[in-house]
């Protein structure tokens, strides 16, 4: 993968007024439950965890106590796997928030810093390599025409003459075909518009991958390998916690960050400020400013997936 850096660019991510409040109340409770369960787990030993894993029900059918039990078990398992404490949060959607994203095609230089920041933040498998963001190099003369798209461009320096760049990740569709497709309800849209996957319920049939028009869903074809030193221990149950083999995963707008009022990692890292993020329900948010003042379009609009992810031309 290229790590071409452009010295001209300076990072800029304007403040977001839309993502106030945080879920500290619930996470404290989660933490208590975790502690209790961890002690219990230590007493009982880990032998039961496999049985519990097997019998685990769909996340949306679990009571609060069961969720906490599940988290305690996962944290035990991660501790055993990585030899390191991993925090698994389960912050719920913030009231009055629907997240929106806008990407400025006139600024993006195709440096792929977002790709790597995402991999780091979200604990993607390094081997086999999984990347939730795919950056397309397109011809200026052809516009957004996938027949001229190249994901594997590798010049000494970007941007290249005659080309523009279009990063694609999960578009957090309002009418997500992936959710409709899943035979077991292992993937769904949360109240804040984030489409999540229950990694403990997914059966790995990959029907959602066939259904997604944006190539946004990725499968753990082999056992995911994540070196301990690369592990991000601050995770969310429905987000960046380490995944098992044989399940599907995807971008969650960095649910572990954004539900605590932070920006997604890709927004923070982008050196050109091409990435805008915020609360669609907040009229004063930057994302609303973009939608109201720039000319935006939705990728593959004709499919009526109604993404909450927009592309625009800022300059």
């Amino acid at each position: 993968m290229t790590e071409t850096r452009d010295p001209r660019s300076t990072g800029s991510t304007a403040g977001c007024e839309g993502c106030g409040a945080d879920g500290s109340g619930t996470s404290r409770r989660a933490f208590l439950g975790t502690a209790v369960a961890a002690v219990a787990g230590a007493l009982v030993g880990c032998g039961n965890d496999h049985v519990e894993d097997f019998l685990q029900h769909n996340f949306r059918e679990l009571s609060k106590a069961e969720v906490e039990e599940m988290i305690a078990r996962l944290e035990r398992e991660y501790k055993a796997q990585f030899g390191r404490e991993v925090h698994v949060g389960h912050e719920p959607p913030l009231p009055g928030v629907i997240f929106g994203y806008a990407l400025d095609l006139s600024r993006c230089i195709g440096c792929r810093r977002c790709v790597h920041a995402c991999v780091q933040e979200n604990n993607q498998s390094r081997d086999p390599q999984i990347q939730w963001i795919r950056v397309l190099q397109l011809d200026k003369e052809e516009g957004v025409d996938l027949r001229h798209a190249d994901q594997y461009y590798d010049p000494p320096e970007v941007p290249e003459e005659g080309h523009f760049y279009m990063p694609v990740q999960c578009q957090q569709c309002k009418k997500p075909p992936c959710v409709k497709a899943c035979p077991v309800g292992a993937t769904w849209r949360e109240k804040d518009g984030i489409v999540v996957v229950d990694y403990n319920w997914c059966i790995g049939c990959r029907y959602c991958m066939a259904a997604c028009p944006y190539g946004a869903r990725h499968f753990n074809w082999g056992e995911p390998h994540l070196p301990v030193e690369d592990l991000n221990p601050d995770t969310h149950l429905l987000g960046n916690r380490p995944r098992p083999k044989g399940v599907v995963e995807k971008c969650t707008f960095c649910i572990q960050r954004t539900r605590k009022g932070r920006y997604p990692a890709c927004v923070e890292i982008c050196p050109t400020g091409s990435r805008k993020f915020g609360n669609l329900l907040d009229p004063k948010s930057e994302i609303r400013y973009v939608l109201e003042n720039k000319r935006v379009f939705k990728f593959k609009e004709d499919l009526n997936t109604q993404p909450n992810f927009f592309y625009f031309y800022g300059v």
Partner: peptide, 30 residues
């Protein structure tokens, strides 16, 4: 063939009516 194609055959019961959670009538696979 369905069985060997799924990534988590150990979770096969998730797709069984009544015991699992079938996304019916939405999903054509269900």
């Amino acid at each position: 063939f369905v069985m060997v194609d799924i990534g988590r055959p150990d979770r096969f019961w998730h797709i069984m009516p009544l015991v699992g959670r079938l996304n019916w009538p939405q999903s054509m696979l269900a």
